[in-house]
């Protein structure tokens, strides 16, 4: 191999650049920190699984063979049928078996259950966002609403959702409404709150000078809302929508618990806990958090698009 300039002369090596090492690419990128945390969580998780499953598994194995070796117990703690804490790979296998290996419409399919929960989540999120924005608009335009409504909005969230959910389901069931709508209402109940609080702040965020400007044009309240308050509140709207969409998912899952629903992630959690199927519980939990992650990411995507259109810095 010949170089155009000898190594030791001026100008040598110009135009040649070392390829970034794998390590620096991982550490420098956005994936690096996430990977480090993931590895740490997995290590802790495996340690936890061994520790927590040790007593039951060692007792079980000792019943058949008093001379059981620690290595055998160790293997058993990571492959138990009904572990106290399942190992990550057990959950991974369970998820694989209930998503890829079965038809998405089968009652065993996690995709099917996730779909059942997704419907009310999205409906509840949409209704909650609309309700939240409507309440915020009312609150900032009327002192009376501000004083009368805001305490109730806050009080509404101090009541445990687990106490309200059964009542909503039972009452609506008695008037013949069941399935998606009652769950969506519980989602709405949880998701309107962050939107209301965020939007009250967002709609009040324009500074005095921007508001004075509207006044010099003799703009109506509606024009000020449309041309100043609403666009100024967009960052607040998206931040609160991210909280709201996750809360909506929690609401839909909680809505599936009290009636012993047959389908949905909540039903999977409940059934799993009835029969001690911890692996099933954990795989439903992982599915729920993955779904929440995707939903929050989608809201973030919508935010990026909206910000681009509003001429934000790249």
């Amino acid at each position: 191999m010949t170089l155009s300039a000898p190594i030791a002369e001026p100008g040598a090596g110009i135009g040649y650049r070392a390829r970034p090492s794998l390590r620096s690419r991982i550490a420098g990128g956005r994936a690096g920190p996430v990977l480090v945390v993931l590895v740490a969580v997995l290590v802790l998780w495996y340690a936890g699984a061994v520790l927590l499953n040790w007593p039951t598994e060692s007792a079980r194995l000792a019943r058949g063979n008093p001379e059981v070796s620690p290595a055998e117990i160790l293997t058993a703690t990571l492959s138990a049928q009904r572990p106290v804490l399942p190992a990550p790979h057990q959950i991974a296998v369970e998820i694989w078996n209930t998503t890829v290996k079965v038809s998405p419409t089968a009652p065993r399919s996690l995709v099917y259950h996730a779909g059942v929960t997704l419907g009310p989540t999205l409906l509840g999120f949409a209704l909650g966002t609309l309700l939240g924005v409507a309440l915020a608009v009312g609150i900032i335009h009327s002192r009376t609403l501000d004083k009368s409504l805001m305490p109730w909005v806050i009080t509404s969230q101090t009541i445990p959702i687990l106490a309200i959910a059964p009542m909503v389901i039972v009452v609506l069931n008695s008037v013949g409404i069941s399935g998606l709508v009652p769950k969506a209402i519980i989602s709405t109940y949880l998701s309107f709150f962050p939107v209301t609080v965020g939007m009250v702040k967002g709609l009040r965020s324009p500074d005095a000078m921007h508001l004075d400007l509207m006044r010099t044009y003799n703009a109506s309240g509606r024009q000020t809302l449309a041309k100043l308050r609403a666009p100024a509140s967009l960052p607040f709207l998206f931040a609160s929508m991210k909280v709201a969409v996750a809360a909506a998912l929690v609401g839909a899952i909680v809505g599936e618990l009290p009636t012993g629903a047959q389908a949905g992630l909540g039903a999977r959690l409940l059934a799993g806990s009835y029969y001690g199927q911890t692996i099933q519980i954990w795989s439903a939990l992982v599915a729920a958090s993955a779904m929440a992650g995707v939903l929050v990411w989608l809201v973030g995507l919508a935010e990026t698009t909206a910000r681009r259109r509003a001429g934000a810095r790249a």
């Binding site: 000078m209 004075d212 400007l213 010099t216 003799n218 041309k227 100043l228 967009l234 934000a312």
Partner: peptide, 18 residues
Amino acid sequence: RRARAYGYVFQAAALYPW
């Protein structure tokens, strides 16, 4: 003001960033 008799220029440009 209601007859939009004047244009007002503030200390800062007060342009809407969006």
